[in-house]
Structures are given as structure tokens and as C-alpha cells.
Design a protein around this nucleic acid. Structure first.
Length: 195
DNA sequence: CGTGAGATGATCT
DNA sequence: GATCATCTCACGG
């Protein structure tokens, strides 16, 4: 018998982080994400789940992906290609190994700090891509497995409902046909256009 | 606009 | 030893 009081609610800024990663990835579009006040609204995400060959969690818990199996509404940060950091938001009840990759943000706060971290690039390229998001927001491995409702992190609910586009994920070779990439329709801050 | 190569290191086989 | 949830720069049309 399932206890209706379990799992405990993990709703932040209108997003239910206990939901499956696909739903969370969709719900996160338009939500504000800030690290020490620097950030903007999320305009592109990708969903990953344990039943997903492309997911780091697919082969079960390990040293790297441990946070994916931890509590929802926490971060999972990993190093990509030995160079970049990438930020995920963990979802599902603890133990499921699901998360949402933050792929792009429309910068709204701390633009000067972002430019300092990112170098001399146009505003459109400040946060267009997972590695760029992490660099612009100052995210490193130290930001892994942290709760999203405590500093330095902050979420803000979307102020207006938004139209969400979806497409296949980017940069993966396994389960490459799954349409688990989501974006704010018409946004010019996404890493690649939706069709 | 496009394609392609190199950087760079942890993780997994 | 191979594979990566990437980025930047160089070059061609």
C-alpha cells in the first residue's frame, strides 16, 4: 500500500521535483535560476532517467553520479570532456537516478559578472549551452549535491506561462532519437534552434 | 551559413 | 584504451 504522504512534497517555484524527469524538464522552462544572484530564466533543458542508455545513472550509482540518486530538488554537477562543468537538477524520489540538464538560460541578472567569467562574447552566447551556463553562473564541482532552495541557489517561478518546444537531445550517441530536449519556443537564447 | 579538429581528464571496460 | 550530456577556433562556401 502506498503511503499518500510519501514521498514528501518537493515543490519549488511551482515545479514538482518528484515528477518524472521529462515532466520536470518541461516544467522548468521559464523558471528563474540564480547562483548568488547571477542567472536568468531557463530556456532549454534535457531529461535523463535511469531507464535511459544516455543517462549517467543508467548503470546504477557510482562515485560520479551519486547525487542523481540522492534527494530531488538538489544539484548534480559533473565535468564534461575534462574541461567544462554541467549542471543538472535532480528529480524523482531519492534513489531513482533521474535529472534534468540545464542547457541554456536567458541571462537577466548579473550580466557584468557573466561577461567577466565568459569573456568577450555576445549576450546571446553567455549561457547558450550547458558548459556555458555553468561558466557564466560560476558553477564548479563544489556546487554538486546542494539543495536548490538554499543559497547560493535560488529558483523563481515563471512569471508568465510559456510555449514549450521539444526535440531530440544534443551531443549523445545512445537513445539519440528520444525527443527529450525542451525549450522556450522562439527564444534566441537556446543553444540550437528547435524545428 | 557550414564542417572539422583539438583541448583535456574523469570514468568505465 | 575508448568514450564522453562540450566549446572554441579555423577554414570553406
Amino acid at each position: 500500500m502506498r503511503d499518500p504522504a510519501w514521498p514528501p512534497p518537493a515543490v519549488l517555484s511551482g515545479v514538482d521535483f518528484n515528477a518524472p524527469s521529462i515532466e520536470v524538464a518541461r516544467a522548468l522552462i521559464g523558471v528563474g535560476l540564480f547562483v548568488d544572484g547571477v542567472g536568468g530564466r531557463i530556456v532549454e533543458t534535457e531529461a535523463y532517467d535511469e531507464d535511459d542508455p544516455a543517462s549517467h545513472s543508467h548503470r546504477g550509482p557510482s562515485t560520479r553520479n551519486g547525487a542523481m540518486f540522492g534527494p530531488p530538488a538538489h544539484t548534480y554537477v559533473y565535468r564534461s570532456y575534462g574541461i567544462h562543468w554541467c549542471l543538472n537538477l535532480v528529480c524523482r524520489e531519492a534513489g531513482h537516478g533521474a535529472g534534468v540538464l540545464i542547457r541554456a538560460i536567458e541571462p537577466t541578472a548579473g550580466l557584468a559578472v557573466m561577461r567577466q567569467r565568459r569573456g568577450d562574447v555576445g549576450d546571446r552566447q553567455l549561457c547558450a549551452g550547458p558548459g556555458r551556463v555553468a561558466q557564466a553562473l560560476g558553477i564548479t564541482g563544489d556546487h554538486g549535491a546542494l539543495p536548490l532552495d538554499h543559497p547560493p541557489f535560488e529558483l523563481r517561478a515563471a512569471d508568465t506561462p510559456c510555449e514549450v518546444a521539444c526535440g531530440v537531445r544534443i551531443g549523445i550517441s545512445k537513445a539519440a532519437e528520444q525527443p527529450w530536449r525542451f525549450g522556450l519556443a522562439g527564444s534566441r537564447f537556446v543553444s540550437r534552434p528547435f524545428r
